[in-house]
Design a protein around this nucleic acid. Structure first.
Lengths: 228, 228, 228, 228
DNA sequence: AATGAATGAGGTTTCATTCAT
DNA sequence: TATGAATGAAACCTCATTCAT
């Protein structure tokens, strides 16, 4: 039982696999131009949204010609993939501190996982909003998100089932559905907090969300459920 | 304590107020044309999405000319408002059965509220997906959704606070934030179930979600929390 | 044995069938605009060639906006089809005078057919050059020309076979291949005379071509071959 | 009276003169690169046509960079000239066997000339189609073809005039125009047979075409016209 | 002599909106 | 109130050619 809950919806584990990007340029100059384009695209996308942004805005921001864009990308969608790609490492490695994986420590484990996730979300809030938008338009990205959140839920589901089997969690819950629901709750809170509104206190969100997870699963702070 | 939890994110209480539509046509013929346009727009929007749909598709579907469209609406956004408007009644009146509002009956109340909400969502799943899309584009609709979910949360928050005050719910939770989180969880589950995937069993979803609400709030099935 | 030789390569009998044009506009105004576009396109095509001409040249010539073009045509190829369509009547009805279809009159029949064809070609020389160009680009038009010239050759072939059977023509010739060759000769002469060069005398061309047909087929001016 | 009829439209006698190519590269390496480019260009042109082919396709096929192209050629047109140039030898030396140039042998001479021409055409059919296309676009190549076919016609015309003067051919024909017509017929047959359709038997085509030449000119198989 | 990234003019196409009928 | 042709700004994309390395 390792970091089963340390990743949640919003990470981008499979973006690489599903939306292949074309071969990287061979020369150093080409690499610099490509990076400039990706950075420019991120700024423009975050500023104007995916739909409202124009390729010419991106090339202008990157200080290159429209033709150059097509040297590296085939479409707005493709450079969006590259932007997400570049942000992936940060989203994928939320810098979760080590926590003792002892079942009696479930509260701390969940807290750490949620904090890591929410912090990563906050760092990339504009990008997440962007992904939300693109997912409503492009079925590929919609499917991507779905697959990903299913994968996350599965891990949480395994942890929940384990807790249930050992008497640490409410045995009446369906582990898969509960996992989906709670992961969805967390991601939605992140969305409210940093994609839409601004300024909720991170600690407060972490505290509430973790508490709700614990309560919802029926995990007693320090002893197996069956003991009560 | 009335139906504080019976409405959740996804309803459209304030659509009328924020996105004004122009005056209704005077003649009977005009009324019919307008209705045909709204119905056609709903079909086209649901089929193609808001962005991908063209006014000419809508007018073709409504069997009228493009010019006629502008007799009744000023823009694509305006007819979208009208479509949402027309769907509002169903979304607003989820047909919730009467439930005894006794605090000891909290489980049944929450179950009924969740069921009503989820059923309404399922009936209007495509429209909800649509709203999701438009909200990512149009700040008016984004704000609308936010305001609405805040309003819902406030009602849930009041109920939670009431339960806490009377010893029926975990007193350590922030009622406002918990309300946002749990309402978000429910709406996200509805989104997964009927906007993205297909075929989850309604009863199961209702059961799981309600159980999670109850657990999360620490509501004992039949006795105040303080009694335990 | 009627006008078997009265049509040759260059006519457009099947253009209608193969490259369907979209429905005609309903209103008188629309009809006028469409006609203006087709007329403008013919002028521009004849002036600049198909490849070199731009849609904007056509719309400028027709004094309408670029958008209007797309109300009536989907592409440059489609309006080219329409231009050919419009020229078809003239090419199809070369105004051949009545000639006595008596076998002893073969020379006069061939002369009349060739004259009619060559005159029609001369009237539409620029258009024929254009078709030549488009045929080298677009397989549809290439196939069209091939099918058409095959059809023409078949008719000539029947006439030749008839002449052979009755002893009026060289029986050693393959009627089908001879027909293809002689029709090709005539069309090539028309091409040289009026598509590339300018100023060959029509009567001279008709005379030479007819004489070559007669000689080539071995048709004696006034008596069956077998009599010699 | 030498090989006056052994060359016809389709050969490229004057390509060198009219469309100058730049100086050959000095080094062996450069020569190899240039040759690779020309060979690649021929393949690409034959595959995609002149208009549809892109320089980048050619350089990719030649396994060199786009920049290198401009070391050897100034434009797409120029490399096309070079491709034709390279094919010229084959087209120019159709490998015509020696035939006794005795006037009584006219049939054999014509047959040999036609066969040599048609075989060369068949070997280079795709290239001829290509030339056809470029000629419709580029006035230089159009003029080239015209000049060439005029030159050929002149030679045939001289032979025809000679035959007429000595009573071997129909004296009523205009030798120049008849030559143009018959050469055009032959080239058109080659075009039908191997540029458009496929599978006509070479011997049949040679036989028919030669027969038509003989008949058309009124050349008796074995005796002067005046003897008949 | 070779490279290949950068350029940008030049084309095509779309579609919300207007307006004369 | 209804019509539907006309508009044209605004986006997209291509590719021959240049040029710094």
């Amino acid at each position: 039982m390792t970091d089963e809950l340390s990743r949640q919806e919003g990470d981008l584990p499979s973006l690489v696999d599903q939306a292949r990007v074309r071969d990287m340029p061979g020369t150093r100059r080409g690499l610099r131009t490509r990076e400039a384009l990706v950075a420019a695209a991120r700024r423009v996308f975050e500023r104007d949204g995916f739909i409202e942004s124009r390729l010419v805005d991106i090339t202008a921001e990157a200080k290159c010609s429209t033709g150059t864009f097509y040297t590296y990308f085939d479409s707005k969608t493709e450079i969006f993939t590259a932007v997400m790609q570049a942000a992936q490492d940060d989203m994928m490695n939320p810098g979760m501190p080590h926590v003792d994986e002892n079942p009696g420590n479930t509260a701390a484990i969940l807290a750490a996982g949620n904090r890591a996730y929410l912090e990563a979300y906050r760092r990339n809030a504009k990008l997440m909003l962007l992904l939300e938008q693109v997912a409503t338009i492009d079925p590929v990205f919609r499917q991507l998100r779905l697959t990903r959140s299913q994968a996350f839920a599965e891990r949480s589901a395994r942890r929940i089932a384990w807790l249930q089997r050992h008497g640490y969690a409410d045995p009446t819950l369906d582990p898969v559905m509960a996992a989906r629901a709670l992961a969805g709750m967390t991601s939605r809170m992140a969305y409210y907090a940093w994609a839409l509104e601004e300024g909720w206190d991170l600690d407060e969100v972490v505290g509430t969300v973790t508490q709700l997870w614990l309560n919802a699963l029926g995990v007693a702070p320090d002893k197996p459920k069956s003991d009560s």
